[in-house]
Write a protein that binds this DNA or RNA. Sequence first.
DNA 1: ACGCCGTTTCGATGGATGTCGAACATCACA
DNA 2: TGTGATGTTCGACATCCATCGAAACGGCGT
Lengths: 127, 127
Amino acid sequence: MPRSTRRRPALAHPATEEIDLLDVLHALSDPTRMTIVRVLRAEPERACGTFPVDVAPSTLSHHFKVLRESGLITQREEANRRFSALRTVDLERRFPGLLDTVLAAYGRTGGGAEARGGGEACGGEDG
Amino acid sequence: MPRSTRRRPALAHPATEEIDLLDVLHALSDPTRMTIVRVLRAEPERACGTFPVDVAPSTLSHHFKVLRESGLITQREEANRRFSALRTVDLERRFPGLLDTVLAAYGRTGGGAEARGGGEACGGEDG
DNA sequence: ACGCCGTTTCGATGGATGTCGAACATCACA
DNA sequence: TGTGATGTTCGACATCCATCGAAACGGCGT
């Protein structure tokens, strides 16, 4: 156990082999969550409150919980901030090519030539 | 009134360019619908009532409607039967590789049972 | 120590969704 | 024309879900 005496239940994430495809698909079928995943794909990690989404903090927290429990993201605590990161390696091992294909597909739907090819330009309005 | 013409409103399907990724993902996130899609992938087309799912006819009809309106399948009327088929070409053009990747991923999730035409192992996983 | 800030949890709420049974429509067939 | 098979529509219902506001929690800065 780590030295930090956190009261929080240590943010349960599903194991790689327990990630359910239908849960992942469901998590991805929401616009807010899809935006989060897309942003996260272009950055190693990011604090919860800095995403370019337009919902209340409590709603955002709910979405992060759904994403985390579906196995799409991990969340790490640092001070009073919580950083989220895509579980790209786990996802790739569990469902090879899935994340890539879905995100590329959304790139076509959402506007076309953005958030692809390992570039950046994901933040939008973040400072 | 004319009887040779069909009273049915000709089953509206979305155009290829109008297929929404989030709708597709949502449609795919249901076990029953995933089963339907998986079966359909191994056959050119199939009558509605012949799918290895364990739900009431009205429920099945609802799922077909969701699949059709999301752009995943087409439905063709022949006599009093309705045949469904995957829109593989349209899907491939709209979201290259998506269907393939998702279905392959579900093959892993299902516990090793691949989607075949037989459909004996398909039932029982719906809600 | 106190208060601020980021985040989560709780409770509530309106809307979407999966499910069913019953009734209806259409076609094939005798 | 009547019956059976196939599938849809409707109404109802329980559940899930996205959303919000208010309150609580925890660490950091002043």
